[in-house]
Design a protein around this nucleic acid. Structure first.
Lengths: 221, 221
DNA sequence: TAGATTGTTAATCGATTAACAATC
DNA sequence: TAGATTGTTAATCGATTAACAATC
């Protein structure tokens, strides 16, 4: 219903495309760092691990940032994709649950380098409070509300045991977090308007096992 | 071309269904542990976070394991799905790259409890060799071939820095590993017949950022 | 038998792909 | 102009959903 000016992003980018934009962004960053100024859809698609028809279709949802007969300016396209995703701005993030996985996430350089800034590490276990992880002090989970308010946190990461995850999500939602990355097992229930993405390590292995089993069956035939 | 007996699994389960079977399996395990003997597709779908039409459609690819008017026997369906996925058998796994993430993976109980047995932790850094992680000694990466041969490893996990990932994958493929779970950034190139699944933490956060940005734009309107 | 619930059908929806006109 | 490559179209493919006949 709202009119959009030409500088605004196009609407309704398909989810499958949204999930690939970060992959293109990473490929463009690698090309840029290798000193490549221009690339074709064929070359970028190869670097991103997709076919070029899909890449061009995906990019067409963002606009026309290439030049026919020439290709794409690497840095220009990189900026346009980064802007579309929203990683040209800084996203403060809180991580809850500083066990093995929480440690790994706090130390993961891929977050910081892509516009995500970990503003707090929270854990319910008093024994962990005060510990320094990746240069940040682990604080009590009860500090969640004040930290979210202070830093304007919109994105929360849950790396707690499964039993605690729903309660953590509830508290996050109550204090204004609207995007959650969940590493805990099980299904989170959240209100409409809150996005949850789930990373389930055992699901990934099980999908591999399924295909592996099929390969083994084929060998018997 | 090969005839299949009635005890064999049906062919060609859609990928989207395969990816949900582990989720159903987990929900059934939770129901079973809660003492539930029978459940409807509605109840199981709720526990798994999908709608019941999708659940029934998914299960229909496996066979007819329910009873009309009654529902599903929780333990029976659980076994059938576990068998279909292949997690009724034991899968030896090697993890390469024992940094923060490798530590977290080695300690992740969700693998062991689902039929995945970590038989070795490998790292190229001699300073890490001999370290005990999750009760397993970290060994040199050069031991890969002998370990894979000895244990019949078919599944490898890559948790190395991005620059090392392709070389690790090449070595894995060369010694017979045909399924790879890759946590390293970037695209892996592997021959046909080798399955790679990629878990990319920063991609997940970027997808959330995209939607978060959209919500913020909406508020301005 | 009446009520409940599965398994399947058919319609819809979204994603992928190949082909090529547009155009640098 | 000739060659190269994008952006878009249209066809195909796969996934989702609602509805309901089958049947316990």
């Amino acid at each position: 219903m709202t009119a959009r000016t030409s500088t605004e992003s196009a609407r309704d980018i398909p989810e499958a495309t949204v999930a690939r934009l970060p992959v293109y962004l990473r490929a463009l960053t690698a090309l840029s760092e290798a000193g490549t100024g221009t690339c074709s859809s064929e070359a970028l698609a190869a670097a991103a691990g997709v076919n070029s028809a899909k890449l061009r279709k995906d990019l067409s949802y963002l606009g026309s940032y290439g030049t026919r007969g020439v290709g794409y300016d690497v840095d220009y396209l990189r900026y346009q994709i980064a802007r579309e995703i929203g990683v040209t701005q800084d996203w403060p993030v809180v991580i809850v649950g500083i066990g093995n996985l929480g440690h790994a996430l706090a130390n993961y350089s891929g977050f910081r380098s892509r516009g995500f800034r970990t503003v707090a590490l929270l854990d319910a276990d008093p024994a962990r409070h005060g510990e320094m992880v990746a240069g940040i002090e682990v604080q009590p989970f009860s500090d969640l509300e004040s930290i979210v308010a202070e830093h304007g946190v919109a994105i929360g990461v849950i790396a707690t045991p499964a039993v605690a995850a729903q309660a953590v999500a509830d508290r996050m939602v109550a204090c204004g977090i609207t995007s959650i990355l969940n590493f805990a097992a099980g299904v989170l229930s959240v209100p409409a308007g809150v996005d949850v993405r789930k990373v389930d390590l055992s699901v990934e292995l099980q999908v591999l096992a399924y295909h592996e089993q099929r390969k083994a069956q084929g060998e018997l035939a």
